[in-house]
């Protein structure tokens, strides 16, 4: 029981980080970035190459992964999303295709088989009688730290408030002197950075494989759909619902069903309450 609670809390923190970059883009730019999972893929593999294969210090590997994620996000906005501005179907189709292309690229470079990413922080400890890897603990603490920083940033800085403003009323933001295009660009970069960082944590918790963009994407979509348009707090809450659901499914029913309940939850909420459980538009 305690094991489930501890595992649930830890996993949920990681899920919140995974979902956050996706939620940001959805609330600021109203774009469902179906290529979001590719950031995690890119982040995981870059960290793998730099820190595990080449032996560069782990912190640097993580930073580099985040920076490349940021760059990919910026490029994607500039080259894809902005030119297709307003055409949501075209954006969603092309982002989905992009994710598949990235996957093919990863297979081409690294091969098809999955790789083990060594724990960022090795070792096991006991938390309230439950055994927990240091790695998951570190990932969770890292996630919480990033989420706190993000919350502070969005609430307390001019650029953060401008992000909220664009998400709530683009015209209102523009006549306040905020350039919505720049804020979107910034948000795409930030989202890529968060995604790639989450990818390193996620891969070290599961494993590195060319298809590892799918599961996180489903988690992120679930958080947006279940939570309505995402506030940071809402994202945290829903990530915990999903995290605990998965841990329970694995512990009580069968590990194979891990992601299934999340998907059923998405469909259920879409049918019963399309605006999401918490549905209101804020950041």
């Amino acid at each position: 029981m305690l094991q489930i609670i501890v595992q649930g809390l830890l996993l949920s923190g990681l899920y919140a980080l995974i979902a956050m970059g996706f939620t940001l883009i959805f609330s600021v730019g109203r774009v469902l970035n179906l290529a979001y999972g590719a950031y995690l893929l890119i982040g995981g593999y870059i960290y793998f190459t730099v820190s595990q294969t080449l032996g560069v210090p782990k912190v640097l590997g993580l930073l580099l992964a985040a920076m490349v994620g940021c760059l990919v996000g910026l490029l994607k906005y500039r080259l894809l999303v902005k030119p297709l501005k307003g055409n949501h179907v075209a954006v969603e189709i092309s982002t989905l295709i992009l994710a598949v292309v990235v996957q093919a690229g990863v297979v081409f470079i690294y091969g098809d088989s999955s790789k083990i990413l060594l724990p960022i922080v090795p070792g096991v400890t006991q938390v309230a009688g439950a055994s927990v890897t240091y790695n998951l603990l570190a990932a969770t603490i890292g996630s919480w730290a990033i989420l706190f920083a993000l919350y502070w940033f969005v609430r307390k800085t001019h650029v953060g408030r401008a992000m909220q403003a664009v998400s709530m009323d683009t015209k209102g933001a523009a006549i306040s002197g905020v350039d919505p295009d720049r804020i979107n660009m910034f948000t795409w970069g930030l989202s890529g950075m968060l995604g790639a960082t989450a990818g390193v944590f996620f891969a070290s918790y599961t494993q590195l494989s060319p298809s590892m963009w799918v599961a996180p994407l489903i988690i992120a979509v679930a958080v947006v759909i279940v939570g309505g348009i995402g506030s940071i707090i809402g994202t945290l809450i829903v990530a915990h619902i999903i995290g605990f659901m998965e841990v329970l499914a694995v512990a009580v029913i069968a590990p194979e069903l891990r992601g299934v309940f999340t998907m059923l939850l998405i469909i259920g909420v879409l049918v019963i309450r399309p605006q999401g459980l918490f549905g209101r538009e804020e950041l």
Binding site: R161, Q164, M168, D169, K171, G172, E281
Partner: peptide, 8 residues
């Protein structure tokens, strides 16, 4: 129509 930011 003001275009305020309603949840701020």
């Amino acid at each position: 129509r003001f275009n305020l930011f309603p949840y701020m």
